[in-house]
Design a protein around this nucleic acid. Structure first.
Lengths: 331, 331
DNA sequence: TTGAAAGCGCTAACAC
DNA sequence: GTGTTAGCGCTTTCAA
């Protein structure tokens, strides 16, 4: 099929291209009869407006860039789902960018985004990347950050207050028994989140005068946290572990089980992200149930507001988690 | 920052826009000195070529559409990873489309793809969607299908022969003990895959004169396969279960464990897709290890060939799986 | 209600 | 080696 343009439709319908344009954009100032003629021509020729040309003419692409850390869709998937569902409503299409640390130069990714002239950008990344953010701002992109609370002229964010979540849990456990010790499992791919969690425990510890940093750093020589826990779990000074991802928590649980340490009796384990696997492992894994889907959906919603120049009242939107006890904690 | 165009750069550098165009496209026919002048101007103004305008002028967007079933990134993630890695090499950007059955009208998605004027399309979907495929072909899109072997003028595919895989396994088990019975767990979201698997068992059964359809259909009233197996696993006539996804296999294992049926002694379980969770559940889950990443990577590679008008010798590319025994099978 | 024409930012002949 | 100019397909004033 030959490329059919608006000119072809115009000729076929015996009108000017301006009229065709009006019809495809649903402008009301077209006489019923001509509209039908044009629509018939469109169907007959199988014409589909060229979004690229529209983009040029309108200075607007109706597409947004989504930037996620390498395609670790395991725990990004739900965010993307939420985002896509909302994007569909507003007819935005999504250009997917990933950044594998060390492999892809973020500069290049930002460059690509700028060149692509998307209308806005959504970034989910644990790293803050202030440089890249300001670079994007220079080019006037409305940006929504998922994960950490920052805001600026063109920047909004959607996040969960993890520091507080962990703090509150720690306080609660300490109230139950002052000898309880919470430990945060390092997540190398999510430094910021790890830091937030550690900060939460430390704050609670400090208030109670407990001298502990609450941080379980996994030495570089261990490629998998499972191996680390297998080697160390018997000597662990913590009796309550908080991980970011389900997989880390599961590693700890497996290692504990295999060393005869009972979960949750001797050791409690919980993670932040709630995936379907939480309910599939035994014991079932408790979680904070960070609302990933909503993070994505809200982010996209905020972005569309910004794109419409609607005033966004609150530019740092906090979503709450839903602590979901299962079998890996005593509760 | 005001929008800066090629004209601004040209003026700043004191050359024509044609020269600027030559510089940004790296054409060799520009004198060193002018090139430097232009590059200086580009840096100074912070100019980034408008990919939309380039797209219009070149009739080519250097972007491809990726169509996946709803964002079930659980088992699509690796495919996307492979695809993206290769896409990066060839500078293609990826527009992500999803189709939630019943929610999104596939017609609309196809429409959007056509309008977006991407250079090519990669589809990963269990459903065949012949209508949509021919619609896309009409508009000259090179298409690569992941998952089932089909090909045509503008269509290539990358897949794993699941029917054969299951057939061979069944034959092997039957040779070990003619009383072994393999059963395929229905995957409602993947009819085609399920059908392939069932066909594989049936072929082997037929050859041995065994009267069984090898199909474990999960009645509609069961929303989760775990519930179904909890109710039925004690009466199951199969002693070897094959699931498509890890989660289904895990459900069966959990139900078995909880009913006192030992895996793998009394019941063996295996799934097709290999995820990190395969090694995290206990017993560790054996799998066929369908090479998801490679499916994505190869698909993208084939597509770039088609986009370059290189002749693609084999348009139906079969990839092989790597049977990976773990603890859920006797081996 | 409709048409003519300029412009969106860039590429690629073609001319100099 | 560099500039001029005609598109690429569409939207949107401005006239008619």
């Amino acid at each position: 099929m030959k490329r059919v343009t608006i000119y072809d439709v115009a000729k076929e319908a015996g009108v000017s291209l301006a009229t065709v344009s009006r019809v495809i954009n649903g402008l009301q100032i077209v006489r019923e009869e001509t509209r039908v003629r044009v629509e018939t021509a469109i169907d007959k020729l199988g014409y589909k407006p060229n979004a690229i040309a529209q983009g040029l003419a309108l200075q607007k692409t109706t597409s947004i860039a989504l930037l996620v850390p390498e395609a670790s869709f395991g725990y990004t998937g739900q965010i993307i789902n939420g985002l896509i569902d909302v994007a569909k409503i507003y007819k935005y299409s999504i250009v997917l960018h990933t950044m594998t640390e060390g492999i892809v130069d973020i500069k290049d990714v930002v460059d690509d985004i700028i060149k692509s002239r998307v209308d806005g950008v959504i970034i989910y990344n644990d790293k803050l990347m202030m440089n890249e953010l300001t670079e994007l701002s220079k080019y006037q992109f409305p940006i929504v950050i998922i994960g950490n609370p920052i805001s600026d002229k063109q920047i909004a964010s959607v996040y969960v207050d993890i520091e507080m979540a962990v703090y509150e849990l720690t306080v609660k456990k300490l109230n139950q028994d002052i000898n309880n010790r919470i430990g945060i499992i390092q997540d190398r791919k999510n430094d910021y989140t790890t830091a937030q969690m550690v900060s939460g425990v430390q704050r609670a510890y400090k208030e109670r005068g407990i001298d502990d940093n609450g941080y379980i750093e996994i030495p570089q020589e261990y490629r998998r946290s499972y191996d680390y826990f297998t080697d160390t779990i018997e000597d662990l000074k913590y009796n309550f572990l908080i991980a970011n991802r389900d997989s880390q928590a599961i590693s700890a649980i497996n290692a504990a089980n295999e060393k005869g340490i009972s979960v949750p009796d001797d050791l409690e384990v919980v993670c932040l992200i709630d995936t379907k696997y939480n309910s599939m492992v035994r014991p079932r894994l408790s979680s904070f149930a960070i609302p990933s889907y909503d993070l994505g959906a809200v982010a996209m919603r905020v972005l569309t507001k910004m794109l419409n120049d609607d005033e966004v009242e609150d530019k740092e939107i906090e979503l709450s988690y839903l602590y979901t006890p299962r079998q890996s904690t005593k509760n």
